[in-house]
Design a binder for these strands. Structure first.
Length: 227
DNA sequence: GCGACAG
DNA sequence: ATCTTGTCGC
């Protein structure tokens, strides 16, 4: 897929926060889909690390939707020295570069992309999925395995059960979704150009037998395979 | 000052 | 993310 010119990634943590503040106002949350039945292809991204070998691998898989059949998988390797440190709230600066390198290799463009991290459920409403969506100009969803920001109540122990994630002012920033019975829920939030209810619907549709939505699960496996 | 803190 | 043993349930 084609990717436009991006801003610099080689910045200080302070500069990174300035970039987030500067771009957060450009975020569009209104869905670009009248219905998710319009989605034909969905992509999932993940990054894996191997400190011993000193490298990281970003992988992307493209699946049909809602059948979830694999049609493409691409990846990109990056040396540890060139990777931004992990700092809560600045994950995009660590994983964004290698993920974009992998995304550019996709021959076909997805209709929507899922990221292993938060969307607007972030201190400045600009998590990995939101930031990537704005830069790429594509609809995105954030699906994290743990919380970064906000408060919530545990959803009941049934697949499909969910509660709302809210910020300090009680404003809705995402949902806590149980994608499988007897497992911890995942944190789903709007990334870019997608409604929260559609994001929930899409994530649930991507969860067949496993807890992690298929696009992210397969991308993760590729990451393990490559490192 | 003391926790919390995506991956 | 990664480290790290056994263990509970489908």
């Amino acid at each position: 897929m084609k990717v436009k010119n991006l801003h610099s990634w080689q910045v200080s943590p302070e500069k990174a926060r300035e970039i987030q503040e500067k771009l957060r106002n450009k975020v569009v949350l209104k869905s670009s889909f009248k219905s998710i039945s319009k989605i034909g292809f969905i992509a999932g991204c993940d990054v894996g690390y191997d400190e011993k070998k000193g490298r990281a691998y970003g992988s992307v898989v493209l699946l049909t939707f809602p059948e979830l059949k694999l049609v493409e998988k691409k990846g990109a390797m990056e040396a540890s020295e060139r990777i931004f440190p992990y700092l809560p709230g600045l994950l995009t600066f660590r994983e964004g570069p290698v993920l974009i390198a992998a995304l550019r290799k996709l021959e076909k463009s997805p209709d929507i992309i899922i990221f292993d991290g938060q969307g607007i459920a972030h201190p400045v409403r600009f998590g990995l999925a939101t930031h990537m969506g704005l830069l790429l100009g594509f609809p995105t969803i954030g699906c994290a395995k743990s919380i970064l920001y906000g408060h919530y109540e545990e959803p009941v122990n049934l697949k499909g059960a969910y509660t709302f994630l809210k910020d300090e002012e009680g404003e809705l920033i995402g949902t806590v979704l149980r994608t499988k019975k007897n497992v911890k829920p995942v944190f789903v939030s709007q990334g870019y150009r997608i409604d929260l209810d559609q994001a929930l619907d899409i994530i649930l549709t991507c969860c067949r037998r496993e807890k992690i939505p298929e696009p992210l699960r397969l991308a993760h496996l590729e990451t393990v395979q490559a490192l």
